[in-house]
Design a protein around this nucleic acid. Structure first.
Lengths: 104, 104, 104, 104
DNA sequence: ACCGTGGTTAGCTTTC
DNA sequence: GAAAGCTAACCACGGT
């Protein structure tokens, strides 16, 4: 059932001949193939990402299992992240200063 | 009702013997250490996740670099994902029907 | 990113004359009043929303009452919604393609 | 495309006599029709809900337009809601006490 | 009666 | 500055 619409982009057509020197926006030539390749790379990465999110959930679950309060752990992680981010920003700012002053 | 005032985490009551005069960072017996371990595992995974998100952005950027329209790619990816999800849900619905009807 | 420490709300600087020794609840001149008005409009709408959610629950309950399986109904509703959304998005994708190709 | 799968339905087994001249889409006796009716009522309500959410967003936008900080307004609304909820819970608790003590 | 799960909503981030 | 997509908190429900 269900007709997967969605792949409009389908490089199948093997429009062999005219695809040299194409401008971008190549819809049915080699472009389609290439586009599909990008899409698949993205999908692969997204799968990995989803798997990691799964793992993270599991760690929380495990922590919960031994009696920790998940909500609090989340908060702690978040706060630590804020610290990190802040430090990183400060470093960036410092670099900016250095650059402004010719130190780099 | 309900007190979600954040009573601090407390792992199982294995708080037996050593909880007076603790070293810093060990609030509830061995709990602190254990908690830290969970937190670090989570942070590690989140780093990996961030890296993947970075990678994904790069793929989009690369696609853009060779002339594709990022917005369109995003849409296509999204629609393909919807297909997948929908199929999965339809299967679930089918299972639901079966269960409702005693076929399982 | 920035300090979300909550500098308190402040409407446009029309805080001209009367802002010393204000009554409570009026922090920035006429701003407080105006702010309150926004807040109340929002709260009113949220109440209506909550009422609707209540109604929806009741319909599910009623359906359950005559023997339907709520879980299945939810799934069906969800799938029908996905259809709608998907169709809409496909149209958007089509527009996107057209635009990309100069047809609009 | 796609024909919403879905109505497999079976309301109570009152499938006896009355299924003459059914409308299309009536798979399991009068059940399908009834189910559809429920579904449509739900969908109608959900539309209204979506409209309200739209309205709320507009109010926020308007507030922003005159210089208020949306994030802060959200926070205020949320805090006020917590107050309300808390008060409601306290009232319920009070009722409980009263009941327990025969005051009602 | 509690826990776990899934779905929903709101808030944040990033994009255009 | 607005709009969208993504993520994380919340809540209600069903299962054990």
């Amino acid at each position: 059932m269900s007709e997967n619409v969605a792949e409009f982009p389908h490089a199948e057509e093997e429009t062999q001949t005219q695809n040299e020197h194409q401008a971008p926006k190549d819809v049915g030539g080699v472009g389609g193939e290439r586009l599909l390749s990008f899409i698949q790379r993205i999908e692969r990465l997204e799968e990995e990402k989803a798997a990691l999110m799964e793992d993270i959930k599991e760690v929380y679950a495990e922590a919960k299992g031994v009696g920790f309060d998940v909500k609090i752990i989340r908060k702690v992680v978040s706060l630590r992240k804020q610290d990190t981010d802040k430090r990183r920003e400060e470093d960036e700012l410092l670099d900016l200063y250095k650059a402004a002053v010719g130190m780099i």
